[in-house]
Simulated assay, not measured.
Amino acid sequence: MLIGELADLAGTTVRAIRHYHAEGLLPEPIRDSLGYRRYGMADLTRLVRIRQLRDAGLPVDRIPAALSGDLTAHLDAFDAELAEQERAIALQRKRIAELRGSTVELPERVVGLYDHLAANGVRADLIELDRQAWQLVATTAPGLLAEFDRMLAAPQAREQWLDLALQLQDGTGDPAELAGRLTALLPKFPEADDLPPAVRKLIATFLDPFNQVQHEVTTRVTGVDLP
């Protein structure tokens, strides 16, 4: 049969057959007196198998070994690779789903506190830094954020936070006294010794823009030594 007939019977194209010849997947057949390739049943059988392997996703460079060796063993190995890829993809999709649901919306009282601080002279960058800190806490220890929200319901809590924030912002006041007031306004955080080194480093990096009083107050409250 001619190349066009072979392509029709195998459900492929003449171009694909020529490509398989070039890649060494399909041996060149004998040619007739006019120079046309003449294919037989063995060529058709091999071509169908090549197309099936390609449809299954087997890379071209692995097809010769699969056809000349233990086909089942090659297919089992490839199937195991696909199964591992499926597990990796499933894990990626799980993480994507988790990220979709991880958008942190701070409680209304916390948002109201930030609005109150902004309206009364607390710098926007410090408010944003604190907001980011609580969003980070919410993803790792949501109970602390819930407790902070509950504590903000106490009478005068917003005014106490405002007075404290302004003193910390200005770098005025006694650090020990300010630390005591801040501790009273916050939920109980884990002891510094219980914090992983990475978290300690994160705290130090996060508070890098703060002034000396803020550094000292934070050190007293968290127990984390800042540079």
Results as ranks from 00 to 15, higher is better:
Glu105Gln: 14
Leu67Gln: 06
Asp61Gln: 02
Arg54Phe: 03
Asp55Phe: 01
Asp55Tyr: 02
Ala66Leu: 05
Asp79Gln: 13
Ala56Ile: 07
Leu113His: 14
Ser68Gln: 14
Val111Asn: 15
Arg49Gln: 08
Lys94Asp: 12
Glu108Arg: 13
Ala73Gln: 14
Ala133Asp: 04
Tyr39Trp: 03
Asp76Ser: 09
Ala119Cys: 15
Lys94Thr: 07
Glu108Gly: 06
Ile96Glu: 15
Arg51Tyr: 04
Arg38Asn: 11
Ile89Lys: 06
Glu108Gln: 15
Tyr114Arg: 06
Gly69Cys: 10
Asp79Ser: 12
Asp115Cys: 01
Ala42Asp: 13
Ile89Ala: 07
Leu106Ser: 01
Arg54Val: 04
Gly112Val: 00
Val110Gln: 15
Thr103Trp: 09
Arg93Trp: 07
Asp43Ala: 11
Arg62Lys: 14
Ser68Cys: 13
Val111Ala: 13
Ala80Met: 02
Ile127Asn: 03
Gly101Pro: 05
Ala83Val: 04
Arg37Asp: 09
Asp43Asn: 08
Pro64His: 05
Leu58Gly: 03
His116Ala: 12
His74Phe: 05
Leu117Asn: 02
Gln85Ser: 00
Arg123Gln: 11
Arg46Trp: 02
Asp125His: 07
Arg100Ser: 08
Ile50Val: 08
Arg54Asp: 02
Arg51Lys: 11
Gln85His: 01
Gly69Ile: 12
Leu47Ile: 01
Arg54Met: 03
Gly112Trp: 00
Arg62Cys: 11
Ala66Val: 09
Val110Glu: 15
Leu75Gln: 14
Arg87Cys: 04
Arg37Cys: 13
Gly69Arg: 10
Gln52Lys: 13
Phe78Tyr: 15
Val122Ser: 05
His116Tyr: 12
Ala80Lys: 01
Arg62Thr: 10
Lys94Ser: 08
Leu129His: 03
Leu99Ser: 12
Val122Asn: 10
Ser102Lys: 12
Glu105Lys: 14
Thr45Ser: 06
Leu99Gly: 01
Met41Gly: 07
Pro59Leu: 00
Gly57Thr: 12
Ala42Ser: 13
Ala90Lys: 01
Arg95Thr: 10
Asp55Leu: 06
Glu105Thr: 14
Leu106Glu: 03
Asp130Met: 05
Ala65Gly: 13
Leu91Phe: 10
Tyr36Ala: 07
His74Asp: 11
Pro59Glu: 00
Ala124Asn: 01
Gly112Glu: 09
Val111Pro: 12
Arg38Gly: 02
Asp115Ser: 13
Lys94Cys: 03
Leu71Asp: 05
Leu58Ser: 04
Arg95Ile: 07
Asp61Ile: 01
Asp55Glu: 14
Glu128Ser: 06
Gln52Ala: 13
Ala83Asp: 15
Glu98Gly: 14
Ala80Gln: 05
Arg38Tyr: 03
Leu136Cys: 02
Leu99Asp: 12
Val111Glu: 15
Gln132Tyr: 05
Arg100Gly: 06
Gln52Glu: 15
Arg49Glu: 10
Arg37Gly: 08
Glu84Arg: 08
Ala97Gln: 09
Ala66Glu: 01
Ala77Gly: 06
Tyr39Asp: 01
Gln135Arg: 12
Ala119Asn: 15
